[in-house]
Design a protein around this nucleic acid. Structure first.
Lengths: 175, 175
DNA sequence: ACAAAATATTTTAAATGTAAAATATTATAT
DNA sequence: ATATAATATTTTACATTTAAAATATTTTGT
């Protein structure tokens, strides 16, 4: 049937380079995400958002507020509310009111959550290494540099509204 | 509070280069996607998946089956079923049974859908160009090359299960 | 021809996601 | 002090997404 296999196929010959670039970026991300999601499900019966939330807490042992989690994960506040509730019910994270501000909650890994995360994180890193193994170290450096520039470009472009975080004014220099 | 603004912040200093690379890739994609989603909503009261589906049909004027759409968009079949149903109800796409195979449906843009898409596509391309404007042409070429290599790497790595397309055996050389 | 396997799609159930409104609390400006 | 604005989170309503099961049809093997 000779049909391409991914989103890039929608690029027309006369399309702008930037558009091709964006679609290839999206394709790569989708491919990696699919692999990781599948592995996480098969090996640990878990999901990417759960893993990502635990990873943020592991990276920030000083505990994080709901809003910080929302910013870091680049998802809406309501989304975080649901995920934290779920993980708290399973005893993987703790959620305690802040002393100084009664609006705020501090979220952190429990011992059980830390163990659970560490187990997954090791496998996760190996999966990523394997997926990127086709690029030698220089190629990885080159890609990292290119992506750094892209990140700056995107964050600099237009009026920056940020990632949807309804009801949160965090990180809106233009707002 | 001095907390970073995106997923990369979960990288620890001793983490493997590939992991940093993956998180930066994810961050860039999330940033671009958020911008485009917001613009699409504000300017056209539409969404990315709707746009993507129409774009695939525009790219393939010979019409596509549900399964081909699923592969091209890298989303599950059930997802395509819902999107096509919605767009068909709005008169933007047509969905006709194939002559030779009664399991199969052929989906294509209606005249109304083509107009609707063209209007969005122009803005969409301009948004992308603007988001990538911080990279000069050489940098864009470099990034494209790096991503090409990454795509090959990911598609070559491990047993390729492909993107989740439940109930679809498409493109599984290993299955 | 006929059973079994493969394929294409839809349906289902549950998870994830957004955006906007609602609630509660804290900060600011008279 | 008190009204107003800003902030942090939750709730609500709904859209999207996946994975698996179900359905329908075609293909394959014998």
């Amino acid at each position: 049937m000779s049909v391409q296999l991914d989103s890039e196929s929608r690029v027309k010959d006369d399309d702008h380079v930037a558009l091709k670039l964006w679609l290839r970026l999206l394709t790569c991300t989708n491919l990696v995400e699919s692999q990781l999601r599948g592995q996480l499900r098969e090996s640990f019966d878990s999901t990417l958002p759960r893993f990502d939330l635990l990873a943020q807490l592991d990276r920030h042992p000083e505990k994080l507020t709901m809003g910080e989690l929302s910013s870091l994960m680049m998802v809406s506040g309501g989304n975080v509310t649901g995920l934290v509730r779920q993980l708290e019910k399973e005893g993987l994270v703790s959620r305690t009111p802040a002393k100084t501000d009664r609006r705020t909650f501090l979220v952190g890994l429990t011992r059980k959550g830390k163990k659970y995360f560490d187990r997954m994180a090791e496998s996760h890193e190996n999966w990523v290494i394997e997926l990127f193994a086709g690029l030698d170290h220089d190629a990885q450096e080159a890609l990292m540099n290119a992506l750094s520039r892209l990140k700056s470009s995107v964050m600099g472009a237009g009026a920056w509204n940020g990632v949807p975080r309804s009801g949160t004014g965090v990180s809106r220099p233009g707002g």
